[in-house]
Design a binder for these strands. Structure first.
Length: 658
DNA sequence: TTTAGGG
DNA sequence: CCCTAAA
């Protein structure tokens, strides 16, 4: 194909080939993605998680009022310390929200001075709940540190300017010049102009820009404190700015293997992270208490899945869908629970004593009713241990984030339910309860359930009956259902959820809890998993373009035109893995639209009028350009001859129509 | 895979 | 942002 392209561009000058497109045929409107069948235990878990989110969200609302007053288990000093000297503005996790932090403690943090990377063992007791506190970091920040946020914004702007200066972004006058040249029909290509504004040494941006090293500022770039592979840095500075938002992203960026679109698929990311997480998971222990009345409650609105454009749709989905699924789940009558409480308190305070001691599984009760139905009361699930390795210099925030990612990675990868009877795993999925001995009250206290990672990497057992195995894959069946709010899904999307499971470093301990699958399972599982894996695709988190990003985009389009999004991507967003060329194209589309409507009609964070003007100018210019091309005769300016792909990527061929 | 457009 | 026809 390279050859073909070369022909396209090389022959007959460097004209951009115009390819008339056939009219888009009417597309089949296929109902996309059948909603997964219900049933399976994971739905139960998912619904519980959703419940946790709800509870936690509401409780956080109240706790927000007294900012900084509730930091139950976390050492306040530590937290304060972090806030003071380690501030990563948008990552200040809402420590005031929820009680998630309560159960997270570090046991071995400062144990070895010599160890550069102390092993942090994390009790994951309520780690599920942790997900809730990550909600909308921005909003959270706003509440907690309003000043800080404004500082960040200022920094962004400052930095944006700085970077644009570095990049010698054309001013509106410059682009007018560009247009005049074209309008003048003098045959002067824009190549020279393009060359003039071609980006300078990208490394320049890695040097601490003034704003970042301002000693008076609380905000420091976490990246400039360390040696950073310079070449990875963006040329446009927009990424630098993004670095403020999400250092995970940058960690990825600096270590990424691929810059291509493939990397955009979260599930395909096997990241090489700076933070190595060791997940030596046994079981997940999530204290859960189920309740009939809760599960069948109808006072909560249940909405069908539909896309909500605004207002943190992710969270909303997450809020509602578990209920939906929960209902489906129980409508099927797969599981009957006995009475029990289900609330955030019951979850948090569930003592769990004695469970860790002997019974490896969850605590559960078992009732046998007269009609030979076995009722389960699942108080808790055992959650596998998480081993997380972080450098000493890692922040508490990053620790939390890491834990969150680990947990969500496992959740995202799928969770199975393990059944343990008398401490032994029950592997025969085909056996009946009666046969297994779960129907006798004698086994009351020895029955346990465990959450087990069920990702592909975790080599799940999944023995036997396909319908009952891998309940976990429910997570993958209705992907959007279980995507939490933006914060968490950020972690999901951006920080290679899989690498916490698959850590290929030698000293890592992979998930070892789950024994290798039986041969019997081998024949069955792959098919099912493959089928289900296709539905694991999640909607990406919405990530509004920053001003500097828009600037970069406009700049690139001014140079490259509106039909070469891949080049735009490569040039201006190469280091922004989360921006695909489709994204850029889409953004341009909306920019054009935004520029055309009146300012009053515009929503979202305002784009500087100057940029919008440039958008319109460039769009008009290139549209005209295309139209002329379409017209037929095309002349290539002398300026563009010889500058083409043959000479590399830096300067793209720009053909001028006269 | 990339482009182009509709949703 | 997603989806997808077409190239």
């Amino acid at each position: 194909m390279v050859l073909k392209k070369r022909l396209d561009y090389g022959f007959n000058g460097f004209q951009v080939p115009f390819v008339p497109r056939a009219p888009r045929s009417a597309r089949r409107r296929v109902l996309s993605k059948t909603v997964a069948e219900d049933g399976q235990a994971f739905e139960l878990l998912a619904s519980l998680a959703g419940k946790l989110l709800q509870e936690s969200a509401s409780s956080s609302a109240s706790s927000n009022a007294s900012e900084g007053n509730h930091q139950p288990a976390f050492d306040k000093d530590v937290v304060e310390q972090e806030r003071q000297d380690e501030v990563k503005p948008l990552e200040i996790d809402c420590i005031h929200q929820g009680s998630c932090a309560e159960s997270i403690f570090m046991s071995e943090v400062a144990s070895e001075n010599t160890s550069q990377k102390p092993l942090v063992k994390v009790e994951t007791e309520t780690v599920l709940e942790r997900t809730s506190a990550k909600k909308n970091n921005l909003e959270c920040l706003e509440k907690v540190e309003p000043d800080l946020k404004s500082k960040v914004c200022n920094l962004e702007d400052t930095f944006g300017h700085y970077s644009s200066r570095l990049a010698q972004a054309p001013t509106p006058q410059d682009f007018r010049e560009f247009r005049q040249q074209e309008a003048g029909s003098l045959g002067i290509g824009v190549s020279t102009l393009a060359r003039k504004y071609s980006l300078e040494d990208p490394l320049a941006l890695c040097v601490n820009p003034p704003a970042l090293v301002d000693s008076n500022s609380n905000v420091k770039s976490p990246f400039c404190r360390e040696s950073i592979p310079n070449e990875s840095f963006s040329r446009h500075g927009n990424d630098s700015k993004l670095g403020f938002r999400d250092d995970d992203e940058n960690f990825l960026k600096f270590n990424k293997l691929s810059t291509r679109s493939k990397a955009f698929r979260p599930t395909q990311r096997i990241g090489h992270r700076r933070i190595r997480k060791l997940l030596t998971s046994k079981y997940w222990k999530a204290a859960l208490k189920l309740k009939d009345c809760e599960l069948s409650r109808s006072d909560t609105e249940v909405r069908p899945l539909h896309r909500k454009r605004k207002t943190c749709h992710g969270f909303e989905r997450y809020q509602h869908d578990p209920l939906l699924k929960r209902r489906k789940f129980f409508d099927r009558g797969s599981v009957i629970t006995s009475d029990g409480g289900f609330s955030s308190e019951s979850v948090c305070n569930s003592p769990e004593k004695g469970i860790d001691g002997g019974n490896p599984g969850s605590s559960s009760k078992l009732h046998v009713s007269k009609d030979s139905h076995v009722k389960f009361s699942i108080k808790s699930f055992k959650i596998p241990e998480l081993y997380i390795e972080l450098p000493e210099t890692a922040t508490i925030g990053s620790l939390k984030r890491t834990i969150t990612e680990s947990v969500t990675a496992i959740l995202g990868g799928g969770v199975r339910i393990g059944v343990l009877l008398q401490g032994k795993k029950v592997r025969d999925d085909n056996g009946t309860l009666l046969q297994t001995g779960i129907s006798c009250k004698e086994n009351l206290d020895t029955l346990g359930f465990a959450l087990e990672p069920c990702s592909l990497q975790a080599s799940p057992i999944c023995v036997g009956d396909p319908s009952s195995q891998c309940a976990t894959s429910q997570a993958t069946r209705s992907p959007r259902t279980h995507v939490p709010h933006s914060g968490i899904s950020d972690a999901l999307n951006d920080s290679s959820q899989t690498d916490s499971i698959v850590d290929k470093t030698p000293d890592s301990r992979a998930l070892v809890a789950v024994p290798p699958r039986s041969t019997e399972a081998l024949a069955v599982v792959p098919v099912n998993q493959k089928a289900r894996r296709s539905q694991v695709i999640q909607r990406r988190t919405r990530r509004p373009f920053s001003v500097s990003e828009v600037e970069a985009l406009v700049h690139a389009v001014e140079e490259l035109g509106t039909g070469r999004w891949r080049d735009v991507k490569l040039r201006a967003f190469e280091n922004s893995d989360h921006r695909t060329y489709v994204d850029l194209k889409d953004k341009w589309k909306t920019l054009v639209h935004t520029a055309r409507i009146s300012p009053q009609q515009r929503r979202g964070k305002p784009v500087p009028q100057e940029l919008l003007d440039r958008v319109l100018a460039a769009h008009a210019c290139w549209s005209q350009h295309q139209a002329k091309q379409q017209g037929g005769t095309l002349k290539i300016t002398e300026a563009s001859v010889g500058i083409g792909r043959h000479n590399g990527e830096d300067l793209q061929p720009i053909a001028m129509v006269v």
